[in-house]
């Protein structure tokens, strides 16, 4: 009898919502980090176009390429992305500065916090905390933080564009959908620069991966900007569930070799 009561109590508790969390939303909370070294994931380490990633998959699994090393196939996919995929999305104005000269304007070598596209697709640890009315993102790169409001609010009347913009979100089934506007003009890791008219839709989905259930998080970021793109550019990357990882502070940034 006593054991039966305990069992019933446990079953009832299991049905109760987690305090502060809406029901029927995917559980994305916790620490995520780089996936194990894999061909496509390495290609997308700091973000890639979805088309470029699919092209790499195609040539990796083509029997005609059996003797070609990964470095060569990756280079082919990077060239495809750089010379065909991304340019086909850019406006004539954006093409004038594409691809950016990384030696003349090094991106990661400058000790400045990253802009939106680089931050969203940044590698390494990335912590998500879900609340009833918002989701918090905490990135290991630059220890940047974002808040995604789930309560349907609009940007404040005096909102000014910022490095990471203003984000609202909602859940669509197993996916967290984030819409961001008000992003400062900046450069990307993919050779293009965008204007302050950039708007981005991010779709985060937790999926199964080799060796685990729900231990992989994928994002597809859809970039739209009338100044930069003549059609939406789809980019993405992935993380692996990494509860033991930590986020360390950014200290004493010095440009390498300075």
């Amino acid at each position: 009898m006593h054991r039966g009561l305990i069992t019933i109590t446990l079953l009832v508790c299991a049905q109760l919502p987690i305090p502060g969390m809406a029901q029927n939303v995917p559980d994305l909370s916790g620490m995520w980090s780089d996936p194990p070294p894999r061909a496509e994931d390495a290609f997308c380490h700091v973000g890639c176009t979805i088309e470029g990633r699919n092209y790499l998959t195609q040539i990796l699994d083509d029997p005609a390429n059996i003797d070609r090393p990964y470095a060569e196939l990756r280079e082919e996919a990077e060239q495809k992305q750089l010379t065909e995929i991304i340019p086909s999305h850019l406006t004539p104005v954006a093409l004038e500065s594409f691809p950016m000269n990384r030696s003349a304007a090094p991106l990661s070598t400058a000790c400045d916090p990253w802009g939106f596209t680089r931050q969203v697709l940044a590698p390494h640890a990335f912590e998500i905390t879900q609340h009833e009315d918002r989701v918090s993102f905490y990135y290991s790169e630059w220890t940047a933080r974002r808040t995604i409001f789930l309560d349907g609010r609009k940007p404040p009347a005096d909102f000014e564009s910022s490095l990471l913009g203003f984000s609202v979100g909602h859940y669509e089934g197993d996916t967290l959908v984030v819409e961001t506007i008000g992003i400062n003009a900046n450069s990307s890791n993919a050779g293009f620069a965008h204007s302050d008219q950039l708007s981005v839709t991010e779709r985060y989905t937790r999926v199964d991966d080799r060796g685990g259930t729900g231990n992989r998080l994928e994002v597809e970021a859809i970039l739209q900007d009338p100044v930069t793109f003549q059609k939406p550019l789809h980019m993405g990357r992935a993380w692996t569930w990494a509860p033991s990882e930590e986020i360390y502070p950014y200290e004493s940034c010095i440009v390498p070799s300075d």
């Binding site: 470095a71 990756r74 990077e78 990384r102 030696s103 090094p106 991106l107 990661s108």
Partner: peptide, 12 residues
């Protein structure tokens, strides 16, 4: 391959 990863092509 590592060469392709690095952002420091103009530095090293």
């Amino acid at each position: 391959i590592a060469q392709a990863h690095h952002s420091f092509r103009g530095v090293f």
